[in-house]
Design a protein around this nucleic acid. Structure first.
Length: 739
DNA sequence: GACTCAAGTCTTTTT
DNA sequence: GACTTGAGTC
């Protein structure tokens, strides 16, 4: 058993632990994945049937990685482990048992965009102001209700929620939740949270089904246990309750998904629910240098709520942490790109050894530009992923509707695509007709004369004929052949092909790319079910971190800290270390939120193996305006002993080693009429503009102010633009620059 | 209903 | 900066 060699004592104990519940508290870089994979491999090696092992992770990537590693120890048998994300494993179970809870196995999975769009239509139908009922807020509320296993009915009946909603001036929340749920059911669709919620319902109401899975899975593994929510924990607890062989691995210091319902309490509850659980702590860090480990510890020590843990390392002391102050976000980009260039030259590093981590996806731009300028290849993880693109969602929409003709969101997406002369008004009429007559959407669509009159019948009938032919194909052909037919016969490909613009070409290629991906899926011998619905299932649960195909060794990685969890890099740059950005201002409404942001910082620091650089910009564009920024409070929380050249406090650091990277900030522009504007922008105060002034508009270029209209509520100016000729435009001030 | 342009709005993290 | 909304026109 050579795989046991090189393990330290607690690691070995965790791998060799026999029957019974086990909780592994694994510090950052302590070889958690290694222990988990070896433990599973060890079980299989000793005769446990892989079919009887369930292993749950948060990303498909983590699952694939683990499966591969197990395979290297025990061979292809590893493929039979039920391994995947919570959502994908439970979706698999729900497909099998769908009819027991009133769905068919062809149910659609709504992504966040679908959910939001559905909420938007419901708000409209219920005549509710979407300025009061913010879509994001509504969705978040429904989501947390589901994650805490509160059904729509329970929500409406609960006096506490009602009082809460009344107080926040959103008394109709319960009704929205109920309508939303009805519509999902009618569409034979589940959102992400439903996959967990409905699994709970299934196991609660059908003990025979629960029993089946309890008997099936002798061993249950949960990775990233600190990020599970109540709903997830309850399911795993139930499944494991017969054999009691549940193994959870987590690190409370790395819990960063409370906003999604993750509950650190689960770690404490575990010991309550399984009183005879063995607890193993992995505290030796193998990843990072002493300076990095110690710096991370000095930060996380400020959090009040945490488990006792002592993460240490036997690695070398290593480089001290560098701090960089930049004058602007663009300069921050240049400095980081230059540093990467220099490091590569001096220390023979490859691009793949660098990562740039930021708090929000929007921050990537400056770094992309700077890297591109220096011909340094990079890969962007997250952001607008392939499967989020419009043309991809369009084709997927067609495919979804081919499988499930009650999928309302897919219907809305494709009914007028390519243009059939069926606008939003008509769609809304059909949805209302379905709701009022208690029919499915498909039934309405199949009877257009009755519900819409003659004029609209012809195009709709053509549409239903098309869908029926697609459906017939999907029954006998595989996913690829069906998708190819749909792309062609729907007219999607043709429309994109005729678009000769650069973007049009790219979109056409993207659709081809999707077809290639489907072909790949069909050709892959590991996928037994080659039907369209099987493919859709696999695609709907992809995460943004999953679709990077290109090999990463040659590229610098750019991503949010959230998606960096579980990864490691030789040299890490944590950028945008500014107050209000990180910690995020939006996030900070309580002490608990600050602690979560701090854990996020901890996660970021502990990604670094050998070198860590922190940077912030003094000015940055936000809300379309240049703003000045303060360094993040987190910078001052690192023990200065681990910071390069720091003689005492971070404040002193600013005046010494920072100097090399400091460029003087441009002098602020002259004050206009006694007003000090931010950058060159006109303040929203009308008195700053006067007739005869030369101004620049981002779109129209230079122009001369003819008159200023003080009476309009949005403070507009009549401006004559040189490029537009004599035409005078009425524009608001916000985008004007004065010269 | 489709299209265009300008103004307005909103910025977190993700299965 | 990116995206949505609204008004105006055909």
């Amino acid at each position: 058993m050579e795989y046991l060699e090189g393990l330290n004592e607690p690691q070995r104990e965790a791998v060799l632990h026999g029957e019974g519940p086990l909780m592994i508290i694994a510090g950052a870089g302590s070889g958690k994945t290694r222990v988990l994979t070896y433990r599973i491999a060890h079980l299989i090696y000793h005769g446990v049937d892989p079919f009887r092992i369930m292993a749950l992770t948060f990303t498909n990537k983590a699952a694939d990685e683990m499966r591969k590693r197990i395979e290297t120890v025990v061979g292809t048998e590893a493929r039979n482990v039920w391994m995947g994300t919570f959502h994908s494993v439970f979706a698999r179970i729900l497909r099998i048992e769908a009819t027991k809870i009133g769905y068919t196995s062809q149910f659609s999975i709504y992504d966040t965009d679908d959910s939001k769009s559905l909420i938007r239509s419901i708000l409209k139908e219920l005549n509710l102001d979407d300025k009061v009922y913010r879509v994001n807020n509504v969705l978040h509320r429904i989501s947390s209700a589901k994650n805490n296993l509160i059904s729509a009915d329970a929500y409406a009946a609960n006096t506490e929620f009602r009082a809460d909603d009344e107080a926040s001036r959103v008394p109709e929340m319960g009704r929205i939740y109920k309508t939303y749920q009805d519509r999902l059911r009618k569409s034979n669709a589940m959102d992400f949270d439903d996959l967990l919620f409905n699994t709970n319902v299934l196991f609660r109401d059908h003990l025979d089904v629960l029993n089946k899975y309890q008997q099936k899975f002798h061993y249950v593994f949960v990775d990233e246990f600190q990020d599970t929510n109540i709903s997830q924990y309850l399911i795993t607890k139930k499944i494991a309750s017969v054999y009691q062989n549940i193994c959870v691995v987590g690190d409370d210091a790395q819990s960063i998904y409370a906003f999604r319902g993750a509950n650190i309490q689960n770690i404490l509850n575990f010991q309550r629910d399984f009183p005879d659980a063995t607890v193993v702590k992995l505290e030796q860090n193998y990843r990072s240098t002493q300076n990095i480990v110690n710096a991370a510890n000095s930060v996380i020590a400020r959090n009040k709520s945490q488990l006792q843990k002592n993460v240490w390392t036997a690695n070398e002391t290593g480089n001290k942490i560098e701090m960089v102050r930049a004058a602007s976000d663009n300069e921050e980009g240049s400095i980081v790109a230059n540093a990467i260039f220099e490091e590569k030259m001096l220390h023979q590093r490859t691009n793949g050894e660098f990562a740039i981590l930021y708090r929000t996806n929007a921050q990537s731009r400056a770094f992309e530009e700077a890297l591109r300028k220096r011909n340094i290849k990079y890969r962007l993880v997250g952001g607008v992923s392939f499967y989020q693109r419009k043309e991809i969602k369009d084709l997927i929409g067609y495919l979804r509707f081919t499988i499930n003709q009650n999928d309302e969101e897919a219907f809305k997406r494709i009914i007028n695509l390519p243009k059939r002369g069926i606008g939003d008004t008509t769609v809304a009429r059909m949805v209302v007709a379905a709701t009022e007559n208690n029919l499915t959407l498909w039934e309405v669509v199949n009877n257009p004369k009755h519900f819409l009159g003659d004029r609209l019948s012809a195009p709709i009938e053509n549409f239903t004929i098309l869908i029926k032919s697609f459906h017939a194909t999907s029954v006998i052909k595989d996913a690829y052949e069906t998708a190819a037919q749909v792309a062609k016969a729907s007219g999607l490909l043709k429309e994109l092909h005729e678009d000769k613009t650069v973007e049009g070409l790219a979109r056409y290629e993207n659709v081809q790319e999707l077809l290639n991906a489907i072909k790949e899926y069909v050709d892959n011998p590991q996928n037994e079910d080659k039907s369209l619905s099987a493919f859709l299932q696999s695609v709907s649960l992809l995460t943004s971190a999953d679709d990077d195909k290109d090999d990463k060794s040659e590229k610098v990685t750019l991503m949010t800290i959230h998606s960096a969890k579980g990864l490691e890099f030789k040299h890490v740059f944590i950028v945008g270390m500014e107050e209000d950005l990180f910690p995020s201002q939006m996030m900070l409404s309580s002490m608990a939120d600050l602690e979560e942001e701090r854990r996020l910082f901890y996660v970021a620091i502990t990604r670094a193996e050998h070198k860590l650089t922190l940077s912030y910009a003094e000015t940055r564009y936000r809300f379309g305006r240049l703003q000045s920024c303060e360094p993040s409070r987190f910078l001052k929380e690192i023990d200065p002993a681990y910071i390069k050249n720091a003689t005492g406090s971070f404040e002193q650091e600013r005046n010494t080693s920072f100097v090399k990277n400091l460029t003087t900030r441009k002098a602020p522009p002259l004050a206009l009429n006694g007003h000090a504007p931010s950058a060159n922008f006109v303040p929203s105060d009308t008195s700053a503009l006067a007739a005869g002034m030369k101004v620049e508009h981002p779109k129209f270029g230079f122009g001369v102010v003819k008159a200023v209209d003080f009476s309009t509520p949005d403070k507009k100016a009549k401006i004559q633009f040189e490029q537009v000729g004599e035409k005078t435009l009425l524009l608001s001030f916000a985008k004007l620059m004065i010269h």
